[in-house]
Design a protein around this nucleic acid. Structure first.
Lengths: 227, 227
DNA sequence: GCAAAAGTGTTCCTTTTACACCCATGC
DNA sequence: GCATGGGTGTAAAAGGAACACTTTTGC
């Protein structure tokens, strides 16, 4: 085995969504060199005997205290000079989380952990800007044919929230009425017959819940989710 | 850095297509333990200072003598017990090649190298069956919205060949007339005003060539390739 | 009552699907 | 001439886009 000085890390681009803040990413301020004091995507070295997903979840816990509710492998970056220390290959993941559910805390391995709106990121360490760009592109593409958007919203959510999420992700207006027609006719949302507590003017919106079982049943039958 | 005993390999699922043999995969017979004498996907250890793609291309050259004309990263498999030797993480790729273009030869690192029809694979070493399944699923999905199918055909090809390729990949009949309409109206094929040398009965088919420049121009304008 | 936000329905147009006919070759 | 495979067109059906009206709330 001729390989030398090779290390393997995992990194995770974690997206969070919030009705007022829009789509955000979780970043940490690095506590150690290289790029000490710079913002970066959370991540760290894979331990022996640990699966990649375990490593991601462990690092997220250690560095930010959160637990994502969706996690998917994104891409593996292996350019020999992407890390100034040595040849370090990283397996990048992206995750989704309900922002309302967790409080951030910066812990042992990071000076600080914070949400940043995706349109207002600081300069990132390593090749993390590339990783972020890839993650966002993947999320945009994936949300059109897999119902992962729900993972960013509260368990009970009004349709307009989902609508706003899609408009944010696509960066363009989507007709409100066509959107709800399309979503509702998929028959994967459960009408909770409840209304959202008023938070402004206008008619209160109905609350829905994503019905996972129904979705998988339809998927088995070959029905496609498509927004 | 607490990691220990971690190694990194690359593997490649190489697809080849042939009008009579259908869709095939390139496998090698392993020369060394573990799984000595068993069939496996070509691959091997990443060398220090080498990019992942370089490693894949080097291994393919060494083990089978071929050079793919399309290569894309598939997924990284990191389950700690996927290799009996130790914790070995592998970055898998899939590649496409024009079978008519290369002659296989088994070289230093493999006892034998051979094409296998995708419906008739031998039992594979390691978790290579999973990797193959994932690669096939990815190819099926990708061919619908990226014109990578051309990479499997001769540079000059008749439409019926492309049609057969899509039918093979989707595993179902596609209306011949609707298919050519859809492809031709994308305006990415160049009509060569030549006809295929006869190879049976029936009217000879026109030869076309994929026009990469035209495709990228359309893509820039936001036009989507969709079959 | 008015503005703002949400729910529902209808029409038009584009795209997809299904299907029929003609053409060029080998035997 | 007939069977085989390839090229082209057209009509019906489905899906998506555009758009209007009504309902419920806060002020």
């Amino acid at each position: 085995m001729l390989q030398q000085n090779l290390s393997l890390t995992v990194d995770a681009v974690v997206f969070g969504y919030d009705a007022k803040d829009g789509l955000s990413v979780l970043l940490i301020k690095r506590l150690y060199e290289p790029f000490k004091g710079k913002w970066a995507i959370p991540g760290g070295f894979l331990l022996a005997g640990e699966s990649l997903e375990q490593a991601v979840e462990r690092e997220l816990k250690e560095e930010t205290g959160i637990k994502v509710n969706y996690l998917e492998q994104l891409y593996t970056y292996g350019n020999p000079d992407r890390d100034p220390r040595s040849h370090i290959v990283t397996v990048a993941y992206y995750g989704l989380i309900r922002r309302t559910k967790f409080e951030l805390y910066a812990s042992t391995d990071a000076e600080d952990a914070q949400w940043f709106n995706i349109n207002n990121l600081p300069k990132l360490a390593f090749d993390h800007q590339t990783i972020f760009d890839d993650a966002l592109a993947r999320l945009r593409g994936k949300i059109a044919y897999e119902p992962i958007g729900f993972e960013l919203l509260d368990e009970q959510f009004p349709l307009p929230d989902l609508h706003r999420l899609y408009e944010t992700l696509y960066g363009q207006k989507i007709d409100r009425r066509n959107f709800s027609k399309k979503i509702l006719q998929l028959d994967i949302l459960e009408d909770l017959n409840k209304f959202q507590a008023h938070e402004g003017r206008g008619r209160p919106s109905k609350l829905y819940k994503f019905n996972k079982a129904k979705y998988f049943a339809l998927k088995e039958k070959g029905m496609m989710f498509e927004v």
